[in-house]
Nucleic acid binder design. Structure first.
Lengths: 192, 192
DNA sequence: AGTTTTTTGAAACAATCATTTCAGAATTAC
DNA sequence: GTAATTCTGAAATGATTGTTTCAAAAAACT
C-alpha cells in the first residue's frame, strides 16, 4: 500500500535526547533537533509530533536507560553492601566525568515545576531508584553490613537528595575530590 | 543639563528577578521582563543593558539578599548549634513553602554549565554559604554540641549538597514530611 | 507494472524573539 | 525662559521561533 518511515526512530530519539540534555528544553530550537536527528521537520511532525512530545519521548528514553542499569545491578549475586558501594562510586564517577550532568535533574529544575507530564515521568523514575536503593539497604542491613538503626527508606531518600546536590556542586566548583570525600562520608555515616 | 532616569532601578531589578526566577533564562522573553519591570525596552537597553546583563544583575541581586540573611544569622549571640538548627529548619520551611525553589540552583542547572560569569557568581555565593556553615559547625564543635570526629568543612559541603537535593525532591514529590524527616536525620547524624 | 498511500524535502507560514531607531517629551542648568 | 541634553514611548528591525503546506519521490500492495 505505502511507504515506510525511512529513519530509525530510536536513533533519532537518542540524538534528540543528547541535544535536550545539553541545552535544556527552552534552550533547544527545532532546527537544533532536526539537525542532530538528521530528519526533516515534516517527518518529525508526521511521526513523533511536536517539540513537547519529542521532549517527553526523550526524558522517557533517558529514564528507561537508567531503569535498565538498575535492573542489571539488582540481578547481581554480590552482597548488597558491595552493590550499594559500587553504585555510589559509579554515580560519583559519572558526575566527575564532567559531562552534561543528569538530564532528569536538569529537567526537574527547568520544566518539572510547571509541567505535569514531565513531573510524572520524573516521579516514576525517582520512585524506581528509591525502591532499588531501599531494598538494597534493607538487604545490607539483614546481611549485617549496615547499621539497622535507621529506616532504609529514609536513607534511600537521603542518598538520592545528596546525589542531586553533588551534581550542582560539580557544575559550580568542578572539584572531583570534594565529591569523592562526600561519598566516603556518606558511606561512613550509614555504616556506623 | 539633562533629564534623570525615571524608574527605580532596584525595584525594576527585583521585578525582573522574580520573572527569571520563575521561568528561567531561556523561558523568559524580553516582553515578560519589560511588562514586569514596567519600563520600555529602550529604557532597559539605555540603562542596564541587554537580556544577559540584566540576568547577571538579577542573580547578583539574589545572592546579595542571601548574603544579608547569613550576615544577620552570624551576628546572633545564641549558641552555634542553635543557629545551625534554626538555619536548617528555616531552609526546610522555605523549600516546603512551595514557591519557586531556589533561583541559584535553577540557574546552576540551566545556564551555569555554559556561562562563566553566572558560574562565577554562583561559586562566590556557594563559598560564602560554605564559610558561614563551616565556622558555625566548628564553633558548635568547640562548644561541645556537635561531634568533632569529622571535618567541619566537609559537613558544610555535605549539607549544601543535601539541601539542593531537597529542592528537587520537593518539586517532584511535593512531600513536605519527607523533607522534614531528612532534615532531622541530618541533624541526628552530625550530632553523634 | 500500475495504483495507492505515505514519506520526504524545500519552502513558506505567522508569530515571536531580542534589539534598535528616532522623534518628541521631560528635565536640568544657565 | 531658553538651550542643551537625556530619557521615554511606539514602532520598526531582521532574525529566529515552532509549525504547516504541498508537490514530488518512494515504497508496498494487487
Amino acid at each position: 500500500m505505502a511507504r515506510n518511515v525511512e529513519f530509525n526512530e530510536e536513533e533519532a530519539i537518542q540524538k534528540a535526547m543528547e541535544v535536550f540534555w545539553e541545552k535544556g528544553y527552552n534552550g533547544t530550537s527545532l532546527r537544533d533537533l532536526t539537525d542532530a536527528m538528521k530528519i526533516n521537520s515534516s517527518s518529525l511532525y508526521n511521526t513523533i509530533g511536536d517539540k513537547s512530545e519529542l521532549y517527553l519521548r526523550c526524558i522517557t528514553h533517558y529514564t528507561d536507560l537508567r531503569k535498565k542499569d538498575l535492573q542489571q545491578r539488582m540481578s547481581s549475586k554480590k552482597p548488597a553492601f558491595e552493590i550499594l558501594v559500587e553504585y555510589i562510586n559509579d554515580a560519583i564517577k559519572v558526575i566527575t566525568d564532567g559531562r552534561n550532568g543528569c538530564m532528569a535533574i536538569k529537567a526537574a529544575f527547568e520544566v518539572g515545576a510547571n509541567n505535569k507530564k514531565v513531573k510524572a515521568i520524573l516521579k516514576n523514575d525517582s520512585e524506581y531508584a528509591d525502591q532499588f536503593l531501599t531494598s538494597l539497604i534493607k538487604k545490607a542491613m539483614d546481611e549485617g553490613h549496615l547499621s539497622d538503626e535507621e529506616d532504609p527508606k529514609l536513607i534511600a531518600d537521603y542518598f538520592i537528595s545528596t546525589w542531586t546536590g553533588w551534581y550542582e556542586s560539580y557544575i559550580i566548583h568542578k572539584d572531583a575530590d570534594k565529591i569523592r570525600k562526600m561519598g566516603q562520608y556518606f558511606i561512613r555515616q550509614i555504616s556506623k
